[in-house]
Amino acid sequence: MIEHQQLNLPPHLQKKSPVPYFIRTTIFVTCALTIAGGSWYVAVDLTTASDLTAIYNCSAFFAYAFAIPLLHEKLRWSKVFAVGVAIVGVLVVAYGDKGAPKHGSKSGGGAGGPHAPENDEAENRALGNLVIGVGSVLYGFYEVLYKKVACPPDGCSPGRGMIFANTFGSLMGTFTLLVLWIPIPILHVLGWETFELPTGKTAGILLVSVLANATFSGSFLVLISLTSPVLSSVAALLTIFLVALCDQILPPPLYQPLTGAAIAGGVLIIAAFLLLSWATYREMDEERKKHAEEIAPESDDDEDL
């Protein structure tokens, strides 16, 4: 059903094994996500936190740009405006209060990332901005790619879509566990990056982080499956404001004051999400009515016969 985007398959396709398609798609989509997410961790030491937050979270724009040719979405100015408002909100958060600590940006998994060190004299800033710019494009491409090659066709029940979204997320995790660990010992032996097993408090924090991100990633894939990559990408921007709110309950020195820019940017992002949700709902409702009108004449013809 997913490979051919058809609900009713002919008999010769029903006998075909889905395993080769699952393997190819899992490798392709997981590599796209890994490269996009890895760019965040490469760029974090090269550029400033403000640039990192602003550029990477422009992936919502690129998700819409890729959705038009790949998913054949119509160019709707209401969606363009909503995405633009969301990006403005991110810019306000990133650059609104110069000299104030910045809040975490979106990480590779789409959730609120770790805090990036603010360094006005960041070395290789242009290179870092280029790296995170490529990552932003690839993350938008990953979202659309998942919708195109790993989501059930239109008309599939929401329950089946949710089940398969988590199934595919598990396949991505399996590929990561079996294959993507290979560079770790190589980097360790070469001395490029030293790795140690986490212990004590660090291990506990990592466990909480893993569980939280697993919950986010599963929900994120379900949202893409049931709605669109554009709405999901803008929804992920809400994590920026949530990180700012969570900072209020952290003890010093992790505590960061809630600035006016964080509040204003958060309000803009929330407004953009509501606007885009409404635009997406109207679009889905129009498609539903159109589909019902196409079926109605066929039913009338059957009754006449």
Score class of each variant (00 low, 15 high):
residue 3 E to L: 06
residue 3 E to N: 05
residue 5 Q to H: 10
residue 5 Q to L: 01
residue 7 L to A: 00
residue 11 P to N: 04
residue 12 H to G: 08
residue 13 L to I: 01
residue 14 Q to Y: 10
residue 15 K to P: 07
residue 15 K to V: 06
residue 20 P to K: 00
residue 20 P to M: 01
residue 23 I to M: 09
residue 23 I to H: 07
residue 24 R to F: 03
residue 27 I to V: 13
residue 31 C to T: 10
residue 31 C to N: 07
residue 40 W to M: 10
residue 41 Y to H: 11
residue 42 V to M: 13
residue 42 V to K: 03
residue 43 A to V: 06
residue 45 D to A: 11
residue 47 T to F: 10
residue 48 T to I: 05
residue 51 D to T: 10
residue 52 L to E: 08
residue 53 T to V: 14
residue 53 T to N: 13
residue 55 I to T: 02
residue 55 I to N: 01
residue 57 N to F: 09
residue 59 S to Q: 12
residue 61 F to P: 01
residue 62 F to V: 00
residue 65 A to I: 11
residue 65 A to E: 05
residue 68 I to F: 02
residue 69 P to I: 02
residue 73 E to P: 12
residue 75 L to A: 11
residue 78 S to V: 10
residue 80 V to G: 11
residue 83 V to F: 03
residue 84 G to V: 02
residue 90 V to N: 08
residue 94 A to I: 07
residue 96 G to E: 00
residue 96 G to H: 02
residue 97 D to V: 10
residue 100 A to K: 13
residue 105 S to F: 15
residue 111 A to W: 04
residue 115 H to Y: 14
residue 116 A to W: 05
residue 116 A to C: 11
residue 117 P to H: 01
residue 118 E to W: 04
residue 119 N to H: 10
residue 124 N to W: 01
residue 125 R to Y: 15
residue 125 R to S: 12
residue 127 L to M: 11
residue 133 G to L: 04
residue 134 V to P: 03
residue 134 V to L: 08
residue 141 F to H: 00
residue 145 L to K: 09
residue 146 Y to V: 04
residue 152 P to N: 06
residue 153 P to I: 04
residue 157 S to L: 05
residue 159 G to P: 07
residue 159 G to W: 01
residue 161 G to C: 09
residue 168 F to M: 07
residue 172 M to I: 14
residue 177 L to C: 10
residue 181 W to S: 10
residue 184 I to W: 09
residue 184 I to H: 10
residue 186 I to F: 06
residue 187 L to H: 05
residue 192 W to I: 13
residue 194 T to D: 13
residue 195 F to S: 00
residue 195 F to V: 00
residue 198 P to K: 00
residue 202 T to L: 11
residue 206 L to P: 00
residue 209 S to H: 08
residue 216 F to N: 02
residue 217 S to P: 15
residue 222 V to W: 02
residue 228 S to N: 09
residue 229 P to H: 03
residue 235 A to M: 12
residue 236 A to K: 03
residue 238 L to K: 09
residue 241 F to I: 12
residue 246 C to Q: 14
residue 247 D to N: 07
residue 248 Q to N: 15
residue 250 L to V: 03
residue 256 Q to H: 09
residue 258 L to W: 10
residue 258 L to F: 12
residue 259 T to I: 06
residue 261 A to D: 03
residue 264 A to P: 12
residue 270 I to E: 03
residue 270 I to T: 06
residue 271 A to L: 12
residue 278 W to R: 02
residue 282 R to S: 08
residue 283 E to D: 11
residue 285 D to K: 09
residue 285 D to H: 04
residue 303 E to S: 06
